[in-house]
Design a protein around this nucleic acid. Sequence first.
DNA 1: CATTCGATTGGTAACGCTGTCAATAATAAT
DNA 2: ATTATTATTGACAGCGTTACCAATCGAATG
Lengths: 327, 327
Amino acid sequence: MPSSGSSRPAIPSRVTLKDVARLSGVSEISVSRVMRDAPNISKKLRDKVNEAADTLGYTPNRVAGALKSKSSKLVAVVLPSMSNEVFSQVLDGIEAILAQHGLNAVLGLSDYDPERELRVIRELLSWSPTGIILTGLHHNETVAKMIAQQNIPVVQIMDIEGTPLQSAVGISHTKAARAAADYLVEAGYRKPAYIGAWSERPERSHARRIAFEIRLVELGAPLVTHRIAPERSSALVGAEVTAELIKSHPDTDCVFYANDDLALGGLFHAMSAGLSIPMILQFLASTGSKSGKRPRSGCPASKHPASKWERVPLNCCWRPKPRAPRL
Amino acid sequence: MPSSGSSRPAIPSRVTLKDVARLSGVSEISVSRVMRDAPNISKKLRDKVNEAADTLGYTPNRVAGALKSKSSKLVAVVLPSMSNEVFSQVLDGIEAILAQHGLNAVLGLSDYDPERELRVIRELLSWSPTGIILTGLHHNETVAKMIAQQNIPVVQIMDIEGTPLQSAVGISHTKAARAAADYLVEAGYRKPAYIGAWSERPERSHARRIAFEIRLVELGAPLVTHRIAPERSSALVGAEVTAELIKSHPDTDCVFYANDDLALGGLFHAMSAGLSIPMILQFLASTGSKSGKRPRSGCPASKHPASKWERVPLNCCWRPKPRAPRL
DNA sequence: CATTCGATTGGTAACGCTGTCAATAATAAT
DNA sequence: ATTATTATTGACAGCGTTACCAATCGAATG
């Protein structure tokens, strides 16, 4: 109990470093170091502090720490929306790894609106995150400048075709679409069609379709037709558009869907219309459990076997400090 | 540019209140008030400050604000996982409303593990969130105590059967299951089966099954059989279990699935096995676009028509201060 | 005209923690 | 033994903002 007034119940004001320091008879900074698991702490001190902290039920105040160190254990994650299954899986993966490093995700959704995305990024940056994850590679100058000011790592996901601000993790939508075209033609299909939705809003789907079409022409099996629904993608739209497409182009022998839910709808239509769907088994197989622990080699956050240490850029662990060059 | 050394490029250190105050010739606190859109600010002052802030490209440092005010514009959101479609939709909805109020979600995933949930909650609370959203009603004393210490609003979601810490938003899984039983029996089905997965890990599904079974007995159409797969739910599991169940109990005329992906798998199986599925259209219809703006009446964050104001508990807007009683 | 009350602005002191620098003990090197 | 190096601990000063209190100004009151 940090402060106990005698007159009345007293506000159980937050337990701070100071309280722990007082109880354990060491300096505040030492408590701070123990809590952060810094290197070069004697076991004796560590034990003393931990005991006091447990007794008081101390929880570090990350806000104060972030203010002083100008970097928090938060990672800004900016996604376009949660409606697309892809992004919930992405977020799941992000969170899993962040958690292993004691980091937390602060989420921002742009709803595919660049202006809104800008606002969201600005908002999230005001939390001094230790890094930021953006979706896509198309970000304007303002974004670049804002992020540069904070000097934090940026990872852009979902796309790798273009120039990333720093680093990009994703797939080449062009190559993916070409691979799909190759696969279909090799499998013997010659009358491919394409179904997209929401007017191809996320540019990535447009890039995919174009690459798909070009490759098909190269392979001598050009697209029979394509449909881009104006609505957002959904299983219902997928089913309806598929029905219409098959009806007006009965010679179509395969369909490339821009989205998983569109494909699902198409699948429903095909099944109920009695069409043969040779790939359904593959689909089912790929719908298997998405969970399971993903082991990941991280930096050894709590082991400091050697001598001199420094924070690594990600700020989540320590590494040996390079020996300073003598003059 | 807050500080520009003449000797070298100089670190473009963060633009702060002080810089804005200097440029606009007012006090720091006034700048702070303008940025927070506090009441009782003259238009002249507001304009001066805003202009200076724009010139400098000032962005408030939420971390500092949170430290001083002991409350941030973050809302802690603790969900079990992102693998279940339900939770990504829930998160989508949460984010949409929070964004309207200038709040941001900090995400924590418990992976259905109470111990891990505790860690995550502790972690998130260290950011002085302005509120916290938990999943389910079953939380132990420690959680209750930690939250009580911070004195913030708690919303528990997904379930309303039990005693919430403060408030709960969700459905009655018991009633839902009974309603499903009623519906099926009324629709003429008499040989119901049940399929669940992952050993009924989230207690809610267990509650649902029991209520379903009881109601079915009451209605004179007891469960033919049930299957609880040990693996996590997935379409593949749904398909396999359905196949097995139908084979061993061919008289089954309807199935209650614990999860949407299980049901999807069941649907696939049924379709490819040529079974009639009277409800597929309903399913398709319900898979429609999940997006769309959800209008919501919030508190008027930026209007202060009257005289004396104070922060409202949620800390996202102002309300008139009640007149202090005279002695 | 003096007084009151509310509207508007400013000054000061933290919030709780960690970066920086410094001091002391312990150990190894010469 | 003496010096160099490393391991370990501490003191101090803010980080950038806002709570709290005080001051000023104007208009309305009596």
